[in-house]
Amino acid sequence: RSGKYYFYDNYFDLPGALLCARVVDSLSKRNNGQKTFDFWKDIVAGIQHNYKMSAFKENCGIYFPEIKRDPGRYLHTCPESVKKWLQQLKNAGKILLLITSSHSDYCRLLCEYILGNDFTDLFDIVITNALKPGFFSHSPSQRPFWTLENDEEQEALPSLDKPGWYSQGNAVHLYELLKKMTGKNEPKVVYFGDSMHSDIFPARHYSNWETVLILEELRGDRDAKPEES
């Protein structure tokens, strides 16, 4: 771990990489080929202003006001085939989880647009503000689950006793709940994620879950026309 480096490891981070590159270009041109830079703290301040926990409710920054105004400009609705598949899994007795580091108000906006207003019917457990990868690597005492009321965290829980919508938390207490819900000592979890750093590696390494990486580049391979021989 080093403060000198930041790992841009998924599509959500790519605009930040582009922004950093443009800052470097701008400073280099302005300062006759400047070679060292110290603007990362300003990038972090901008991220915190736009994405802090209260930003959605306060309607501050650039991102949340715009996506609330016109979500269809930025989001794709989920194909009916995927929603049907999720419902089939639930009908077959599988427990469906939604775990996201997004806060509850933003998660609700996205899921209502993408999956429909009844999206909570698809999931037995919804966990927002999960603070991954710490959700997998931290102990229950470090990351307890919190109850939510009107998208505000209310009460830290000593354990997770029933399905529902929670904030923060840890994989240990979640797995104990899955044991209780399934009646199995070692229930199998298959976890889908789009970040090697926050999803795939920690879920496999710390929790021994089966993992599936959602990799957008594969769509290009699928849609590409075969080369003529």
Rank of each mutant, 00 (worst) to 15 (best):
K68R: 11
K68V: 09
K68N: 11
K68E: 12
R69K: 15
P71D: 03
G72H: 07
R73F: 09
R73L: 14
R73E: 13
Y74P: 03
Y74W: 14
Y74T: 03
Y74A: 04
L75F: 14
L75C: 07
L75K: 07
T77M: 11
C78K: 03
P79W: 01
P79Y: 03
E80Q: 14
S81A: 14
V82M: 12
V82N: 02
V82C: 11
K83S: 14
K83I: 12
K83H: 07
K84W: 09
K84A: 15
K84N: 13
K84L: 13
K84D: 13
K84T: 15
K84G: 08
K84Y: 12
W85L: 14
W85S: 10
W85P: 00
L86P: 03
L86Y: 10
Q87I: 03
Q87E: 09
Q87G: 10
Q87S: 14
Q88G: 10
Q88T: 12
Q88R: 12
K90S: 11
K90V: 01
K90H: 10
K90P: 07
N91D: 15
A92Y: 02
A92L: 08
A92S: 15
K94Q: 07
K94T: 00
K94D: 06
I95K: 06
I95T: 13
I95P: 00
L96D: 05
L96G: 05
L96R: 02
L97P: 00
L97S: 05
L98F: 15
L98D: 06
L98R: 00
L98Q: 04
I99H: 01
I99S: 05
I99A: 06
S101K: 07
S102K: 09
S102Y: 07
S102W: 10
H103P: 01
H103A: 11
H103T: 10
S104M: 06
S104Q: 10
D105Y: 00
D105Q: 14
Y106V: 06
Y106C: 11
C107P: 00
C107D: 11
C107G: 04
R108A: 13
L109R: 04
L110F: 09
L110Y: 08
L110A: 11
L110W: 06
C111G: 00
E112W: 02
E112V: 00
E112K: 06
E112A: 04
Y113V: 05
Y113M: 07
I114Y: 02
I114R: 08
L115V: 05
L115Q: 01
L115M: 15
L115D: 01
G116P: 04
G116V: 07
G116D: 08
N117G: 12
N117Y: 08
D118K: 11
F119P: 04
F119Y: 15
T120E: 15
T120V: 12
T120L: 13
T120D: 11
D121M: 03
D121G: 00
L122E: 07
L122P: 03
F123C: 02
D124H: 06
D124E: 08
I125Q: 04
I125Y: 09
V126G: 05
V126Y: 09
V126Q: 08
I127A: 01
I127W: 01
T128M: 03
N129D: 14
A130N: 05
A130C: 08
A130M: 07
A130E: 08
K132H: 08
K132E: 04
K132C: 05
P133Y: 12
G134V: 06
F135R: 04
F135E: 10
F135K: 00
